[in-house]
Nucleic acid binder design. Structure first.
Lengths: 261, 261
DNA sequence: CTGACAGGTTCCATTTAGTGAAACACGATC
DNA sequence: GATCGTGTTTCACTAAATGGAACCTGTCAG
């Protein structure tokens, strides 16, 4: 029951193919897909055809390549705007990244894992969004810990069980007991650090975005690398982060989020 | 062969259901979906189940509602970043909206129609993205006409055939002949206007984003309403638009867009 | 010119998976 | 405790997906 995915039915396969195209990152030819997919030729072919005339993929007859289609783009926007925090937080994130000159991440907790929903990189503007949309572990990232710290005990127990504590670096907190202690410190301090716990050389300072009743609805972090900044440098921005988090929470509260908070 | 969609196979139905959930804009209960869908109970049920354990939907057991899932969010980001212009243009659009205080739209041409891929509203920050992801007509929008004006004759013929000239307002250009004349004027002027041609009260000034070889890869517009601004007001921003379009084109060129331009 | 080959597309008998009417479970009302 | 609104499961029926193989191209080599 660890990693489930019996790829049920046709729909599952179709989505796998869709993801294959999406993952490739650029227009792909049929045979390229064939080589990485384990479907027989004809099956893959029909799957691609189905997705294509569903507008989820786009087939360029000229070059014979497949790329993501309009319908997916439309769904994309629905998904993004309904992942709720991203559009609300966007102006605040912009402001933060301008004020600090560092990379800002916006994340949400999903099934015990961290889902990055937006990213703003002040310095190298082009590559933004490169990593947004990714899912990461909660126990060894700044945003993850910041959110966990404000989970109610009941939910926390559940979520801790979902963590697969892997020691990414020497600093990774790799046991539930140690993590609980860290969470208590974070709760007391008001914000969390990532001391190269996930990737060597990458540090961050993160705060939770809390609803009126104190439930974590997201996380906000400022990230840098050890050769550019120290934890103390990042900590100087902590109040700006907290401030922004508060404003985002306010906006979210007033906009919508009726139930589920 | 006009509007095809025999909803082929299971995949098609599943996607329809997915879109139904996405379209609802908020967590939906089973029976709500049942009432708008024309599938029988059991079928809808299994479809939802399939989508759910494919992570395309998320089922909240507590409230018994469905909302968009993580996997779709991930795909969303792939789609958005591969729709290419959006992430590249984002900083330029931000700058434009700040400089002008008006709403900025970024669009691309897809199969003869305008696909809005980003939107920035300086004034009311919250509702941004509300309308991004939408598809609109090319013949009666500023961005649409700006892009059409720079299409090579061969492609233009194709695209004109795809237009379904509907007279939205008194100002709508509703014939191919008139449109060709307008396109010539736009080409000469360098930018296009929308004189309440699509929606009454809505005006805009739009420029094409042109690749090195002069092919339109997107469009950029500044939009307002007649009770806030005049066409002349918007025209004063034309040079800023052209400037931004040029920079976006440059960035796009240097980043990637190897083939297909 | 011919033969070999790779990328794509189509056929079709076989098997699998999706279908949906109806029955069932569970709560909330009346 | 009968009734209604929801959500879930069953199961015989049917439509749809499957994939091996044949079939098109166009291309390149001899």
């Amino acid at each position: 029951m660890a990693s489930e995915r019996p790829a049920d039915g046709t729909v599952g396969k179709a989505l796998d193919v869709l993801e294959l195209v999406a993952g490739h990152g650029a227009p792909v030819r049929f045979s390229d897909l064939l080589s990485v997919s384990d479907h027989p030729k004809a099956t893959l072919y029909r799957l691609l055809q189905t997705l294509t005339n569903q507008q989820m993929l786009r087939h360029d007859a000229e070059s014979g390549t497949y790329s993501l289609g309009v319908r997916l783009v439309r769904l994309a926007h629905s998904a993004w705007s309904q992942s709720s925090l991203a559009p609300i937080a966007r102006p605040h994130i912009d402001a933060l990244s301008q004020a600090t000159g560092e990379t800002i991440h916006l994340a949400q907790l999903d099934a015990g894992h961290v889902l990055y929903v937006d990213k703003r990189n002040a310095a190298r503007a082009i590559e933004m969004f490169a990593q947004a949309g990714r899912v990461g572990p909660a126990y060894c990232t700044g945003v993850g810990k910041a959110m966990l710290a404000h989970l109610d005990p009941e939910h926390l127990d559940e979520v801790l069980k979902a963590q697969s504590f892997h020691r990414h670096t020497a600093n990774t907190i790799a046991t539930a007991v140690d993590l609980r202690a860290e969470l208590a410190r974070i709760r007391a301090r008001g914000y969390a650090f990532d001391r190269e716990e996930h990737e060597p050389g990458i540090i961050c300072c993160a705060v939770p975005i809390l609803s009126r009743i104190g439930k974590p609805i997201g996380g906000l972090s400022i990230t840098s690398s050890t050769n550019r900044a120290t934890l103390e440098d990042l900590e100087t921005h902590a109040d700006k982060l907290l401030n922004a988090a508060g404003r985002i929470a306010e906006d979210a509260e007033s906009w919508r989020f009726p139930e589920r908070i």
